[in-house]
Structures are given as C-alpha cells and as structure tokens.
C-alpha cells in the first residue's frame, strides 16, 4: 500500500500537465466502469481550468489582444514552469508578465509583456491595504526648517509603471472600452504612470519627468529634500508645492515621518 505522501506526489504529477503517464496510479485507482486515465483526466481538466480562469481574470486585456486559444497555450506553458504555490489562486499571475516579455522579446508583440505588467500592477493596486488620509494638522505643525527632512509614505496601492510602449492606451482600448479598438501607433509615446486606488476605483495618471523622479524618490523612502532635488534635476520647472498639494489631496501621500535631528539624538 502506498503512503499518503507517495500517492499524492504521483497524483499531483499525473494531473499537472507534465508529460508521461503513471503506471503507479493505474494500479492505485479502481477502474470500475471508467479507466483510471479517464477518471484522472477530470481532475487534470479541473486543475488546469482553475489556473487558466485565474489568469484570464487578471489579464483581460492580454486575453482580448491575443485571443483565447493563444492565451490558454501560454497559460498551460506558464503552469508547467510556474505551478501554483498557494491555496489562494489569485497569486498565479505574478510570473505571467515576465513570461510574456521573454516569449516575445524580439518580435512584433514585444509590448505584450509591458501590458501584462500593467495589468498585474492593477490587480495589486485593487487588493493592497487600505490607509487613512494624511494627518494635515500634524503636517502643519512641522517647523519649515525641517521640511527637507520629511519622509513621506505613499498609499499602499500606489504603483509606478514605466514602459517604452503606450501600454496604458493599449490596455484602455482593450478593457475600459467595449468598442472595437482603434489602431494604435506603438511609437506614439512612452508611459510613465502612477496607479493608485481611490473610492471610485483605480486611477491612472501620466507623470511628467519631474513628477516621476519625485514619486520615485518618495517610493524609495528618500527624504522630501532629496526627492525635490531629483525632480528638479529631471525637470527644472518642477513645482514641488503644487505637486505635493495634488498628491496629498489625491490620497497618494498618506503619512510622514520626521527623523530625529542631530540635537534630538
């Protein structure tokens, strides 16, 4: 009699889509009526269908762009190299953008990886933790001399996205709009995007070079002064006060910390 572990290892292998049959399971499953292979196929189909359904739910734009047959072919290949490692299927799409980028690195569909990456960031933003708005009263109490040292925190749903392709326009044409997508010029412009969750859903905002550098600095937990310096270097016209105002009121910046200065230490 096989141990529980032996049986489960063989069973999982047999339904994982990997090549090769298992004589072990042919002996272990009662044939009564249907062959063991037929019975195993039901579980193999269920497991594959669940994996593909989760991918389809996370990547609707990719699905529309490539069609169901090719999407499923890619999904099956991804499942062989990146099987689910969690009882929560919502994680299985994490490796899909890198897989698609590698598969189409050198062909006309090289934008697919970036569109998939944008879709995955969208999923992350949907499920990130909630956070209260910035305490404006506490911020107002910070002495102006300490502004440069302020370390701002971004809302947990904030994601920054850059691509040489117009990935957001591609996504938008294939998901947000039900109409037949118009032809898009892949050279129409690069994306530098801020994604974040609001009460109304996920917001996409194209960023100017200075805004990108500023948010990148904050996301890397630079102090406010260093982030402003990086932003001004990227864009001499960068207006720190206006951008800060917009990010605070948009609930993108949600907290701050003030490191102890040398005297306090």
């Amino acid at each position: 009699m096989p141990t529980l572990l032996e049986l489960q290892v063989e069973f999982l292998h047999a339904i994982s889509g990997a090549p090769g049959g298992s004589t072990f399971l042919q002996r272990t499953i009662r044939p009564s009526g249907f062959s063991p292979a037929r019975r195993l196929a039901i579980y193999a189909n269920n497991a594959e269908a669940n994996y593909l359904a989760s991918l389809r739910a996370s990547f609707p734009a990719i699905l529309r762009l490539v069609g169901e047959a090719y999407f499923n072919q890619c999904g099956r290949e991804l499942r062989r190299t990146h099987p689910s490692r969690s009882g929560d299927l919502q994680h299985v799409g994490a490796a899909f953008p890198t897989y698609l980028a590698a598969r189409h690195r050198d062909d006309a569909y090289r934008y697919l990886g970036d569109v998939a990456r944008l879709e995955w960031l969208y999923q992350e933003a949907l499920t990130a933790a909630d956070h209260a708005s910035l305490d404006l009263g506490a911020l107002a109490a910070v002495p102006p001399a300490r502004y440069e040292a302020l370390c701002f925190s971004l809302h947990p749903s904030v994601r920054l996205f850059a691509s040489p392709f117009p990935a957001h326009a591609i996504w938008d044409a294939n998901v947000a709009s039900a109409a037949e997508p118009e032809r898009l010029d892949l050279d129409q412009g690069a994306d530098r995007l801020l994604l974040h969750r609001t009460a109304g859903g996920i917001v996409f905002q194209q960023l100017k070079p200075g805004e990108w550098a500023f948010l990148h600095g904050l996301a890397c937990t630079c102090g406010f002064g260093a982030a402003v310096a990086a932003a001004t270097q990227a864009d001499p016209e960068f207006d720190a006060v206006a951008v800060l105002h917009q990010l605070v009121h948009g609930n993108v910046i949600v907290a701050f910390a003030l490191p102890l200065d040398a005297e306090q230490q």
């Binding site: 290892v9 999982l12 490692r85 009882g87």
Partner: peptide, 11 residues
C-alpha cells in the same frame, strides 16, 4: 497540494 505545489482543486 503536496511539496508546496498546488492543484487548487478538491482532490
């Protein structure tokens, strides 16, 4: 699941 790999089905 076994060995940390999941079928995400009720086996």
């Amino acid at each position: 699941s076994v060995g940390g790999t999941f079928a995400n089905d009720l086996l």
